[in-house]
Amino acid sequence: MSAAETRDLELRDVRRSFGATQALRGVSLAVRQGEVYGLVGPDGAGKTTAMRILSGLLRPHEGSATVLGVDPAHPRGEARERLGLVPQRNTLYGDLSVDENLHFFASLFGLSRPDFEARRERLLHITRLGRFTERRADALSGGMYKKLALACALLHRPRVLLLDEPTNGVDPVSRRELWELLYGLVHEGMTLLVSTPYMDEAARCHRVGLLYEGQLIAEGEPRALARAHGVSPSDFESVFLAIIARRDGRAA
């Protein structure tokens, strides 16, 4: 297998601005097949912008993005059939029930009836939403909502999954559950790109990229990064602070 083939997600020198705001200032990253890649950065670093470009919702102003070797914004939408997105915002239909949301998105992905039934069964099981199928989505708790969003994104068995701050507003117990669930998916061969502002979550990833003011300022395995900056891996939070401090010091 060649190196290019194993790169499920790739950004090449991507720039994107909104008016005067430069959200991404030349970001390159690659996520290998079966990898959990953590995109870590403070508010406004450009994490969501990177996710939106990879899911084809935005086009880069410069540079390029590929998902499984194709342009995610291609009008044919080949990438869409193999990519799942759990956005940062709550973007399901709040006035539809859990079941209705699942059925709606399954129809858009063209799942057959028996296929849908099987998928529904399995996803309700792993997300433990089985008891809440009749509940309106906007009546779910934060954690349950994220799980429903995850279930909707997994219906069509995507090869790659993008999760934008999936544990935002989720209690610690549900957060752990959610991560266990994600690791289960990786065992099945899925590729994950997860953005998070939490360092402890970053430490759970195979590799992390530190995004700061639209630039990727460090990348590597969490342990290696910690070692390189002389902090203990359990105190991953300091890694980020150390890198930013050094960078800002150099700039000054």
């Binding site: 919702l57 059939e81 990519l83 997105l85 956005p87 915002r89 973007t91 858009l108 992905f109």
Partner: peptide, 10 residues
Amino acid sequence: GTLEQLQVTP
């Protein structure tokens, strides 16, 4: 934001 969710489907 539901429109975005629709836009990542076929």
